[in-house]
Amino acid sequence: MSSTTKSWIWFAVLLTLIAGAGIYVGTNRRAEPGKSFSYSVDDYRQVDPALLRYAEADGLRPAIKKLSALAVAPDGKIYVAGENAIEIFPDRTVRPVDGTPVCIAVDDDGTVFAGLRDHIEVVSKDGKSTAWPSPGEKACLTSVAVDDRYVYAADAGSRRVWRYGKAGGAPFEIGAKDEANGVRGFYIPSPFFDLAIGTDGSLWVVNPGYHALENYSPEGRLISSWQNSSFGIQGFSGCCNPANFALMPDGSFVTAEKGLPRVKIHNLDGSLRCVVAAPDQFDNGVTGLDVAADRQGRVYVLDPARGVVRIFEEKK
């Protein structure tokens, strides 16, 4: 072998060593976190297709911004609240509100009871607004409901439900701890506290810390309750779930959850009936899902992240 060839071989070896050292230094050799350190919640985002008994129909896209609340009126019209306004479908008329309602309820005559943070604003059909006095310094209203006699407001700040007459006035208190009569009080870790009025005039209220729904008479007597805590699809988990709910025409409950966003229907005893919308049907990190149902059993879901009202119909 000639000396020139040997020199070239030396050159190639040296170059290979330098390249190897460069790759060694430049490569990250740290191990990825092992099994013990990884935690996937993907399994909890998956839903058995057999449970998904609703299909999405064409939704509503309101003109108003920062959607915050949803209600279906007795006449079937859809009321959507947002920044300083309430938009009504299908008319697409807009009623101005001084502030952004957190929750709304609609009376038979089209009067809207809008819950702002610390008080109720009554917005009549012709757009006139009247503010009711705040129920207290701690008030943080999160839900309102109206029937032919009363207006109920859920107050997460003072952990009470306030029952008003249609004309307002001093409210009657529901939900104070009364262990002798089985009322354990409302446990509200974060401001998600919903209520709805049943067809019999009784009041259904979420007790979110217990993952429970409690049924009260208008006088505040506890009639019944159910609770269903679980990380799985069959119950509710974490803080303040169900975050929102509405009653279906047959008395069952359509619920919306925060954290892991999903919309489900639970039977009267709290058992899971079916899933309306799975977590994968929502954007990551969506909050503020509100639900409502109409007399035909259609489920309306307010999706603030997409700025739409999504409509789900039972599969035929």
Partner: peptide
């Protein structure tokens, strides 16, 4: 605490 963040994921997925 070793900073693995498992609890953080659990809390943000299911809680506040």
């Amino acid at each position: 605490c070793i900073g693995c963040g498992k609890c953080v994921r659990g809390c943000s997925t299911f809680g506040n």
